[in-house]
Simulated scan of single mutants.
Amino acid sequence: MSRFDTYLQSVVVRAEVEAKEDSSATIDAHHLLLAVAAQDGTDAQRVLHAAGLGYEALKDALHREFAHSLAAAGVSLDDFELPRASQDPERRLRPGASFKLAMERMATAHRKKDLHSGHLLLAILQAEVGTLPRALALAGVDRAGLIERVRSAL
């Protein structure tokens, strides 16, 4: 197994943990991004950290996006104390659409032997719609600028 394969496997395993903690039905791109941010010592993690997007900052941005999305439907998180969803620890989550699209973007843009952590980050950040772009926009992140930083790091 290549170094990148080992990295990708650890990111996907961590993304599944993030999705389970989120009580999500699927593993999505924002779970991948959290997993990338949690992988200490990688180029991708360093680019995120330099942009002020460490793991906790991303968690906060995603929480704000969730609250904002609920507010758009007329629901306020402050009005409810939501219990944690019960989880089946044996249940394996499937990749969601945003996860699959990120993997497809990465696989079609680069040869497998050339892949590094930054390529995965780039593929995740290139999503035009969904939870992740909304969360980054609400956090005031210049997504295009961040994408350019990742490309420069590659």
Rank of each mutant, 00 (worst) to 15 (best):
T131S: 09
K59P: 01
A51Q: 10
M1D: 07
L77V: 05
A71G: 08
D88I: 03
L82F: 11
L33D: 01
A123I: 02
R151S: 09
D88H: 06
E81D: 14
L58E: 01
L154G: 10
L101N: 01
D5E: 13
E56N: 14
D88P: 04
R134Q: 11
L115K: 06
V36K: 03
S86Q: 14
T42M: 08
H119S: 07
R46M: 12
A57M: 04
R64S: 11
D40Q: 15
L77F: 14
A38R: 02
E65G: 03
I147V: 15
K113H: 12
R46H: 09
Q9M: 06
L101R: 03
E18H: 04
D22S: 13
F66H: 13
L138V: 04
A29T: 06
K113T: 11
L136F: 05
L122H: 13
A29K: 02
L132F: 09
A135L: 06
E21M: 13
A153I: 01
D5H: 11
T26P: 00
A15C: 08
V47E: 08
K59V: 13
R91F: 02
L138Q: 09
A67V: 07
A144N: 10
A19Y: 04
E128P: 04
L33C: 04
P133N: 11
V12E: 08
K20M: 09
A57T: 12
R151D: 02
V150I: 06
K100M: 12
S152T: 13
A123L: 02
Q9F: 09
L121Y: 04
E90Y: 12
H49F: 09
M103I: 05
D40T: 08
A25D: 14
Q9K: 11
L70I: 03
V47S: 07
D142T: 02
L62N: 05
A71T: 10
F4N: 03
V13Y: 09
V13S: 10
H68Q: 11
R3D: 15
D28I: 00
D79C: 01
E21T: 08
V17N: 08
S86K: 14
Q45Y: 03
S86P: 12
A102S: 14
M103Q: 02
G54C: 07
